[in-house]
């Protein structure tokens, strides 16, 4: 038995028939080939699969694809717009917030949602916001700094970027 779902992913509308038991993360990875969203644990413990569902950070390994019917979804691939990196994507590079890169998409998606709710977070608030995301490489410090860097940048008055910085 398959169920038809229609949803918008990174601004593109998709209609597919899926098995009822298919997880949203597998729909994104296997059907839409958006492999930037990763599976690290199957039990929503690691956060590598974090995406935005209707604007909220959500662990896509704990949601069925059919539950995402009619939803608006953003994945890591949708974060850079018009070839311009999201400030968090730039920040993770500037602050060495990643090593192997496997947890990075989930970290960025979690942080992006967090920064819409807390525009001027302190260190403690950032660390608590990352409660649901595991990183084994960085010891978290540079991830915390990356999020602080992005927060500062996003709340600063719009400065003109150099062309090189802004290009994906």
């Amino acid at each position: 038995m398959s169920i038809k779902i229609t949803l918008t992913v990174n601004g593109v509308k998709h209609t597919n028939k899926v098995e009822p038991r298919m997880l949203l993360v597998h729909y994104l990875r296997d059907v839409l080939k958006l492999t930037g969203t990763h599976v690290g644990c199957d039990t929503s413990g690691c956060g590598a699969c974090t995406i935005h569902v209707n604007g909220k950070a959500t662990k896509s390994c704990t949601m069925l694809a059919v539950q995402a019917d009619k939803a608006k979804i953003i994945t890591i691939e949708g974060m850079a717009t018009h070839h311009e990196l999201h400030p968090l994507q730039e920040a993770f590079n500037q602050c060495h917030g990643l090593q192997c890169g496997f947890c990075t998409p989930g970290m960025i998606m979690t942080a992006a949602d967090f920064l819409t709710r807390n525009k001027k977070p302190n260190e403690k608030e950032i660390r608590e916001a990352l409660e649901g995301n595991l990183c084994r490489c960085t010891g978290y410090e540079n991830i915390v700094k990356s999020i602080q860097y992005a927060a500062d940048k996003m709340s600063a008055p719009k400065a003109r970027k150099t062309k090189k910085e802004a290009t994906v």
């Binding site: 990875r29 958006l34 492999t35 930037g36 969203t37 990763h38 599976v39 994945t75 890591i76 691939e77 974060m79 850079a80 990196l85 968090l88 994507q89 993770f92 590079n93 500037q94 060495h96 990643l98 890169g101 496997f102 990075t104 998409p105 960025i108 994906v168």
Partner: peptide, 19 residues
């Protein structure tokens, strides 16, 4: 020097075995 490999990872274009 900032890492040259970062862009593919921060944009979801890393290529791991399961991909």
């Amino acid at each position: 020097v900032k890492r040259v490999e970062d862009k593919r990872f921060t944009t979801g274009h890393g290529r791991y075995t399961d991909d």
